[in-house]
Each structure stands twice: as C-alpha cells, then as structure tokens.
Design a protein around this nucleic acid. Structure first.
Lengths: 214, 214, 214, 214
DNA sequence: GATGAATGAGGCTTCATTCAT
DNA sequence: AATGAATGAAGCCTCATTCAT
C-alpha cells in the first residue's frame, strides 16, 4: 500500500468552514427558530460533527450573532449608493428599488434572517438593535432620501419623507412578510407583478403632484 | 395592626384563575417569547405555583392556544359590523377605522399577542392559520369592503380592492408592529397622530378620484 | 323553608367508609397497578373527594397495607378447617377444593389482590412476606394436610406432601393466573370444567400408561 | 504506579453500551419493578449518566421493550427444535426438558424478565402479548408436541395434550416463579433435584394408588 | 367533616457543551 | 483537527399530600 492515500474528493479551505456553518445555521433557524434548532441540526446541515462547530463558534448564541454581523457587513456601505448616485425620476427609481426588493423578499432564504431577528428580538435586544441600526435604518435612510429628492425636485407632493416611507415600505412588508408567514392568499396567490403594479399606482397617485388615471 | 388586611396565601373559588394565568402568560410570552418562557415564569407572574398551572391548562402549548382563542372570540364576530353598517363617506370611514386601530395597537398589551403569533408562526403553523382565519381574514374582508364601496360610489379610483388593502394596512403594520419590535424611531418617536395624518393623506390622494393639495 | 332539609337518599355509617375506600382501591390497583393508580382515582371510585381519603388513611401505602390486612383477617383462621374437619376420600376432597378455588379464581376481582401483592412484592417485601405467611402458607398447609392424609390412609402413593402440593396447585395457577394475565387461549377458551376434569385425572393417575412404584 | 490501570472515565466505542444498559435495567427492574426504577438508577448501575441512556434508548419504556425483545430473539427459534428433533421415550424427553428449564430458572437473572413481564403485564398489555406469542406459545407448542407424541406412541394415556401441559408446566411455575417471588420455603429450601424428582414421579404416575383408565 | 385548590418534590427527557480518543 | 460519547443543568409535567375554606 505504501504511499497510497485515499484522497477526499476535494477539500475546502478551512477558512470557508465558518461561512458554511452560518449558511447551515441560517437555514435551520429559518425553519425552526433559534431555540428549537439544535446545534446538531446545524452540524448535520453543514456536513460537520457537532464538536467541530465549537472550533469555529464558541456557542449557539455566537453563531446567531455572527449571522447577523455577516448580513450587516456588506449592506452597511452599499445601501445609500443607489439612492445617492442616481438622479433619475424618483418614480422610476422607486419602481426599480421595488423590483429588486421584491425579487429578494420572494426568496424565503433571504427573508429568513430578518424574520429570525424579529422572532428573537425579545431575547437578543442588542442584536435586534444592531440589526436595526445597520440594516433597517440604512434602508429607511435610502428610501427617505428618494422621497426627499422627489419632493425637492417637484415630482412629489410636499409630504414628510420620514413618515411617507411607511407608505412606501409598509405594503411591501404586508405583502411579502405577512403574506408568507400567514399564508394569506395561499389558495389564490397574487402575483408579485400585479401587486407591485397596484402598489406603485396607489402610492404614486398619492405622492405624485400629477394625477394619472383620475 | 388596625387596618392590616390579611392577604390569603391563595384563593379558593378559582373561576378567574384561568384568565389570570392567560394574562400572566401573555405578559411573559411578550417579554421572552414562547420557548424561553418557563411555565414557572407564568406561574410566578400569576401568583401561583408551577403545578397549579396544570389544573387549568394541560401544557404550555395549551396556554398559548387558549391565549389565541381568547383573543379571537371577541374579535371574530364584530369586525365586519363596522364596515357593513356604515354608509358614510369611505374616507371618513377609513379615518375612523384607523383611529380605533391605532388606539388599540398603541397599547403594548394589545399588540403583544399578534406579535407573538407572528414570532411563533413558524413553529405553530396551525395556530398561525387559526389566527389568520379568525382575525386577519376578517380584518382584510372589512377593509376590502370599504374600498370596494368607495370604488363603487365613485369616491375612489378604480383600484383592485384586494390589492389596495395592502396599501391601507401595510403602513399601519410598519408603523406599529415593526416600529415597536425594532424600536424604530425610539429616540425621536413619531406621534401616532402625525403618522395617521400622513398615512391618510398619502393613501387618499392615491385612492381618491379628487386630488387635494396638489 | 324552616325545617325543610334536603335529605340525602341514604347515608352510610361513617364506619363503612374505610371499607368502601379499600374496595375502590382494590379495583383501581387491580386495573392499573399501585404506582399508576392515583389517589384521586381511588377517591372518585369511592365517591369521595381526594382529601377525604386522608381522613381514613394516612397515605397511599397505608391503603395498600390495609388492603392486605383486610384480606388476611378472615382467612387467617378459617383455612385449615375444611382440611381438618373432613374425613372424606381425599380425592373427593381435592375435587371439592378445586371447585371452590376455581370459582373464586375465575373472578378477576378476587384474583386482583394476590396479583397486586405479586406485582409489588419488590417494593413492599414486608407486605409480601405478611401475605405469604398469612395466606399462602395457610393454603399450602391445608393442601399438604390433605395429601398427607391421603398417603396415610393409603389412597395416595407415598409421595412427599410438601413437594406434591406443587403438582396440586401449579396447574391451577397456570390455568387461572397465567391464563388471565397473558390471555392464553383467548381465542378458543378452555372451559374451567374441562380443565378441572383433566387436572384431576392427570393428578390422580399420571400420564404414564404403566404404573411404577405403586 | 507500576501496574496501575488507568480506568477511563468513560469508553468511546460504545457498541456494547446498549447491552450494558439492558443488563443494568434488568437488574433494577427485577429489584424494584418498572415504575419504581428511575432512569438514573439504571444509568448508575450501567456506569453512565442519566442523559447518556437516551443516546441508546428513546425512553424508559423503550428500554423495557428492548429487554423483552433481546430475551425473545434467542429463544424464539430454538424452542421447537428439541421437541421435534428427538424421538426418544417421551418420559426421558420431559425429564431432559425439565432439567434444562430448571437450570435456567434457578438463575435469578434469567428468571427476572419473565417475572417482570408477569408483574407489568397489566400495564403493558402489548408487551405481555408479545412475550406470550414469542416465548410462552412456543414453549406450550413444544410441550404439547411431546405429550402428543407420548399419547400416540402409547407411552402416555389418552389425555388431551392441550390441557395436560398445564400439569406439565404448572408445578414448575409454582416452584420457581412463585417460590422465588413469595419466598416460599425460604427458611428450608427445597432442592431443585428433589422437586424435579417428585414432579416427574407424580406427573407420570399420579397420586392415586389405583390406576384408572389405564 | 368534606372539599378541591394549591404546593413542591421528583421523575422523565432534552440538549448545549465538553473532552477522551 | 475532527469526532461523537458523555455530562449535567434545566425544563416540562405528575401527583401525593396539605390546608384554607
């Protein structure tokens, strides 16, 4: 046999392991919540043993924190760009933003972390706070800026942007998050396209200084 | 000791006990979530011993279910009344509905159960389903009817009521539920009055056939 | 109203209560075993409240002990009589004893206490010991005496009575106790009459066609 | 320390653990009965912690079931062989069977499980049923066949084999199981040899000095 | 005397974490 | 570095017993 080595098909860089664990954790947390997810579930999903998890993370809570932090990092600095960089017609901009957002919110995997943060906000207030500051507030700021510009450019009526964003995001939340969680319209699903069309129509007619289809 | 009242260690006639237990459970679930709330927490909050809980409820899940059912009962049959009975201007009607809803949702105690149901929907699909059928669908139907009438009477533009209600409720959800959960605007709270004013303004200009303040 | 008293249909003498509790306990122990029988089960069966039980017995164990003692009392002094008083043909005597025993062992209620004592022998060794001394040993002594007399009178061969009683009782136990416990021949039950006939025949005459040592 | 053996706190390869747990459980169940045996008792006896038990068995009942199944497996298929294979004088055959059975039943460890099954039959009817089908019925069938052959070959009188086996097994049960359970003859134990001798003698020849129906 | 609400110790079971291999 | 057997602290639930009414 001598030098014969049974070589594993391929070996990951050890550096990728933590990320794989986080992927697995996200999947399991999304499916069963934090408390009901066992460390072994995560390990199995990640293709590792229970003990190995603890080489990368010091506790189950640490996994959760890392999950939130990982989600935050890329968002932190890129969110405002879109809003800032673009000088387009704000309606077109919102339409674009909605399309992107809708695409992402339709994916349960993407929706998972916000949902988990929401679920565990009571037990991890600092994490919820962190998430809010780094993700939600950023998104809000971006939308606020769009509305603000719309008002300034005369495309939108003189609404209070800080309040108006509730009308911008709220219907999205109702449609995607509540819709998914509660299975509203499960029997006769509303297409995202239809919904977006309606949302923009109503929103724009409300925000806009010009009345269409009146 | 003069007026000293000897507080009985425990009461006998326990007709109110189940309700007291539910009150305590609501409080604790709201604070810590279902999984992290120990039966003993509920017992302590209700002024009972752990074991006594089981005289009234067969399990922790049973408490949760009873909580949902108790909340549902009064709502179930009164929701449509408002919408059906009134023949007012739909804008005034929506304004009235929002005021009532806002008043109720401002009370953290009232907000607690929907929030918990939302949080635990993943783990108790049947309960989420029950809540949806008994509470959410009723509310949706009522709002849909209002919008429908508005369209028929010519007060509103020819929107699709089924989709439009997302614009009616969504901002409320964003403001009250997410706002509380994530502590948005915690530092500089937005008054409910201001928010409602803004919401109605934007919504109405969007729904309405007549353009105000353009 | 005056002297009007709603008189209960009939009232037991308080003295009978303990016996009723024991009857109830026997029934429940028989059905579910000692450990799995709740004091409340006994109370309900006896038509009493849980608390009332403790007026008559100091603990669940006390009930069990009293049960055994009650069963023992009447037996203690009457068992030997039959064997001693009778001067009949020992075969006829055994036949008579078997008939009486079979009648009693066929009644699950009667079988219950021995079975419970058997089941709980491990946990209540003194009680099992008591039962053995007061009931089993008495029965054994009676049978032994019958066999002894049979041998002396020349009706029986020169067997060792102390060992022979195993052949006298064993088939009865196998038929009645094991039969009931394990549901042997449940589908095609063997009539007690048939069994007794066979038992006596084999006991008296043996299996073999050739008689040795006669 | 020279020859000092460092005993590992616990072993790794745990292939024998389930069996060790079952051994421990058998011991404890035999001593205290099923209900009164705590999982921790079993664990301690097996040299494990409470929690470790649950790596091998899903519940206390599962341990009991596994115990019965383990005992059944080896017995199940070997019982009939003896009876079927041999063409000896049925009396000699019975004598051999009794010797083997007596040897096994004399070992308290072996006697334990049937005894526990007997004790717990009321609470675990399915287990009792399983035991009956897999063990008792097999034994009965074997004995029945022996008697049947004896009758056919003219060695035995024309008894009903199905009923006669009660006379074959009953005395064994009375001697070994009841004897041990109730501690009969504890002070002056009867040797198994003596008992077997007596049993065979009476079984073959009967008690009576006169042979009827021969 | 009777009741049954309440207690609280105790049992079964789960699972995050540790650690011998 | 990885594994997974083992631990032990907790949590849910049961129920014998007590005791205010």
């Amino acid at each position: 046999m001598g030098t014969a080595e049974t070589k594993p098909k391929w070996r990951r860089r050890a550096d990728e392991r933590p990320d794989e664990v986080l992927d697995a954790a996200l999947k399991m947390f999304a499916r069963k919540g934090f408390a009901s997810t066992k460390v072994e579930d995560i390990a199995r999903e990640a293709g590792l043993s229970k003990g190995a998890i603890y080489r990368y993370f010091s506790s189950k809570e640490d996994i959760f924190e890392s999950l939130v932090n990982r989600a935050i990092a890329p968002i932190a600095d890129r969110t405002l760009e879109l809003a800032v960089s673009s000088h387009e017609d704000p309606e077109k901009l919102l339409r674009a933003v909605f399309s992107v957002a809708a695409a992402r919110l339709s994916d349960p995997e993407t929706l998972a972390l916000p949902r988990i943060v929401l679920q565990e906000a009571g037990r991890f207030p600092e994490l919820a706070e962190l998430y809010r500051r780094q993700v939600i507030d950023k998104g809000i700021a971006a939308l606020e800026m769009i509305v603000q510009r719309g008002v300034e450019s005369g495309h939108f009526r003189a609404v209070n942007p800080h309040l108006a964003i509730r009308n911008v995001m709220g219907p999205m939340l109702a449609h995607f998050i509540l819709g998914q969680l509660f299975g509203i319209d499960r029997e006769a699903p509303v297409s995202n396209e239809e919904f977006l069309q309606s949302h923009l129509d109503i929103l724009m007619n409300g925000l806009s200084t010009t009345k269409e289809g009146a």
